[in-house]
């Protein structure tokens, strides 16, 4: 069976800017593959190349073995693409928007009714089927866009930051849906600015400047972090962070929710130095421990080095 997505040495330029540079990757059928990277890294360009909305300058790109350059229309029938700014019809209701996308993709009536019910329930939109899209909250619009993308049960979906603005509980539900459809064989290629989401994917690619910086399962990526993470729990986070900013044994120091994470080459060397600095700065409540790195630690480390 061919790979669901196979990119080899794909390049795309805009004038002098090289948005995607000799990028290669393979996504297996049924896989949840996440791409993460800083703003402007080329994530959206890559998605638009894959779905044929944008032509590549060099390289080859196959979706289910079909060449995107030669048979873009066949590729487009097989995939669902949810762009960052999905167009909903503001003066159509929630149900009418769904029906509209169902019609475009030729979803049969009976199937439509069942699928629409499922998606509306899963996304907690069922009470609002008659509300105009324009009158939905920001996050509800995003959830409706997702439902429209999934209405024709495509075999591969490309989701560009699908959960931006979606509330935490709905994001949990959304990932349940992704797992369910991936278990059913659908391939999912998703970009996200949320590292805890990338952590749930089967494989993750970090991209910057249009190229892959590292690629692997979340566990692999974390295992390859050079150094260790020291968690510092304190009520005086800004003060503690200032005190550690120019401590030489600390590579980076960032606020992570209610704690600070210090990335250090060696915890054994760094911990006494950190303790001394905090004491001098008058931070007395700090509790230090070495923790396994999160994907976000790994990402921050890769980007700040």
């Amino acid at each position: 069976m061919p790979a669901a997505i196979a990119a080899s040495a794909v390049t795309r330029r805009f004038g002098e800017i090289v948005a995607i540079e000799r990028l290669s990757l393979e996504v297996e059928g049924g896989e949840i593959f996440a791409i993460v990277g800083p703003d402007g890294a080329g994530k959206t360009t890559l998605m638009r190349l894959i779905c044929g909305a944008l032509a590549l300058d060099e390289g080859t790109l196959l979706v289910d073995g079909i060449d995107v350059r030669r048979q873009a229309w066949r590729v487009q029938a097989a995939i669902g693409y949810m762009p960052q700014r999905f167009s909903l019809y503001p003066d159509l209701s929630v149900m009418e928007n769904l029906r509209f996308y169902g019609n475009i993709f030729g979803v049969p009536r009976l199937e439509f009714a069942k699928r629409a019910q499922e998606l509306l329930n899963d996304f907690a939109l069922a009470p609002f089927t008659r509300r105009l899209a324009d009158e939905l909250s920001g996050g509800m619009k995003q959830k409706l866009a997702l439902a429209c993308t999934l209405i024709h049960s495509p075999t591969t979906i490309l989701l560009d930051e699908p959960t931006a603005g979606v509330d935490p509980v709905s994001r949990r539900e959304f990932w349940r849906i992704l797992y369910r459809i991936s278990a059913g064989g659908t391939t999912i290629f998703v970009s996200t600015p949320y590292m805890d989401e990338a952590e749930r994917a089967h494989r993750v690619a970090f991209i910057t400047h249009g190229a892959i910086l590292s690629l692997g399962s979340p566990a692999d990526l974390k295992a390859h972090l050079a150094g260790e993470v020291v968690e510092i729990t304190t009520q005086q986070r800004p003060k503690a962070r200032r005190a550690l900013r120019d401590e030489p044994s600390v590579r980076s120091i960032e606020i992570f929710g209610e704690a600070l994470h210090a990335l250090v080459p060696s915890a054994a060397n760094a911990i006494p130095a950190i303790e001394a600095r905090l004491r001098d700065a008058g931070v007395t409540d700090a509790v230090l421990r070495v923790i396994p790195p999160s994907l976000e630690d790994t990402f921050v480390a890769r980007l700040s080095s």
């Binding site: 703003d39 930051e161 931006a164 600015p193 606020i255 921050v300």
Partner: peptide, 20 residues
């Protein structure tokens, strides 16, 4: 109102430094 929605983790941190 959702000032950091869709922003990458490093930029989010910088944004919060500004807010604080």
């Amino acid at each position: 109102d959702e000032p950091t929605s869709g922003v990458d983790p490093l930029s989010r941190r910088e944004f919060w430094d500004i807010i604080v």
